[in-house]
Nucleic acid binder design. Sequence first.
DNA 1: TGCCAGGCCCTCTTTAGGGCCTT
Length: 204
Amino acid sequence: MQPNADSLVILDFETTGLSPDNGDRAIEIGAVRIENGKVTEQFQELMNPGFGISDFIANYTGITNEMLSGAAPCDQVMKRFADFLGDDNLVAHNASFDKRFLDAELNRISCQYRGEFACSLLLARRLYQQAPNHKLGTLVQFKDILASGNFHRALFDAQMTAKLWLAMLEDISIQSGLSEVPFTLIQKLSKTPKQQVSTFLASC
DNA sequence: TGCCAGGCCCTCTTTAGGGCCTT
């Protein structure tokens, strides 16, 4: 069975650090589902990793140990997220980071997923080569996307990534002439050398 | 004891190094 081609889940993790291989865990997951170019559902939960988070992470995210003390453990939250995700494909900003944590947390509960990842960072680096940088917040500003909330919280970052994603789909549609932009085309474009992006889109 | 991420991508590259992104 193939992943669901009509529906996409855009997700973001807040975590205790950068590497699940070094013992870091997820502390919050936020996600939105996009169907036919519109956000139709959202998911957000804090999760208790079972140990205290550093001052750096608390300051960076605004998530405190007190907030996490009342949260459900990671395994319960990730099971609910796996149910939410279903067979959809996935998008994240710097997807290699979120994929590592998704794989690590789902492995702990012996849970699989079928969807494939696309990366909004890799796509933005190709589409918006003139942007000052390709951080999520910078790209939201660069594309004049309305942003009212706190970056570095999972749901808000997922919502902003979703808006950026839809803006990129529109730009791809304009440049390629395609009325619908297949997920597989986006994955190919994300691996196309930057100098060949215009040629790639013109040949669609 | 000391160390501590990983993938992508560029370049003064490929027998390598360093910046960008994510927390």
